[in-house]
Amino acid sequence: MAGDFDLSAPELTRDDLLVLEDPYFGPETVAIVTGAASGIGRATALGLAANDLTVVGADIDAEGLDETEDIAADLDVSGTIHGIETDLTDDGDVAAVVAAAADEGDLRFVANIAGMQHIAGIHEFPMEKYDLLTDIMLRSPFKMAQAAMPHIRETDDGVGAIANMSSVHGHYATKDKPAYITAKHGITGLTRAIAAEGDGSLRGYSVSVGYVLTPLMVDQIADTAAERGISEQEVVEDVMLGQARTKEMMTPAEVANLFTFGFSSHASHLNGADLLFDGGYTHTYE
Rank of each mutant, 00 (worst) to 15 (best):
T182K: 02
E197L: 11
F125G: 02
L107S: 06
E237W: 10
L18K: 05
V98C: 13
T34Q: 08
L48A: 01
T284H: 11
A100R: 15
G280S: 01
D74M: 13
V236T: 08
E234G: 07
Y24S: 00
A147W: 05
G200D: 11
I84F: 13
G204M: 06
Q117L: 13
R192Q: 15
S264Y: 04
S140C: 10
G200A: 09
I84N: 09
A179N: 03
A267E: 02
A50F: 05
Y281L: 12
N164T: 11
E124L: 07
I136V: 14
D156N: 00
A173R: 04
D90A: 14
L12M: 07
P178Y: 01
T224P: 03
M250H: 08
E227C: 14
I32R: 07
D87G: 10
A49K: 02
G160R: 00
T134V: 10
L132T: 12
A100E: 14
E104N: 03
T188K: 11
D223H: 14
A226S: 13
S78Q: 14
P23T: 01
L213Q: 07
T13N: 00
D135C: 03
A161F: 00
T214W: 04
R42F: 04
V97N: 13
I162P: 05
L65P: 12
D61N: 14
T188C: 11
Y172N: 03
A43S: 06
I122W: 04
A145C: 10
S268I: 01
T80F: 12
A183S: 13
M249N: 07
H123G: 07
D76R: 13
I32L: 13
A163G: 10
E234C: 08
A2H: 13
F5G: 02
I136M: 06
T188I: 15
D6K: 15
R139Q: 09
E234T: 15
V239S: 12
M116F: 01
N112S: 13
T68N: 08
E248W: 11
G200S: 10
M217N: 08
E232Y: 09
G121M: 01
G79Q: 06
P150D: 10
M165Q: 09
A183P: 06
A111H: 08
E69F: 01
M165F: 05
M149R: 07
A226L: 09
A62K: 11
L48Y: 09
A49T: 09
E124A: 15
Q220L: 10
T89R: 13
T251G: 03
E286C: 04
A36I: 03
T34V: 06
Y281V: 07
Y281P: 00
N257Q: 02
I40F: 03
M149E: 08
E286G: 11
Y172V: 03
I119V: 14
L202F: 05
Y172E: 07
D156R: 02
M1L: 13
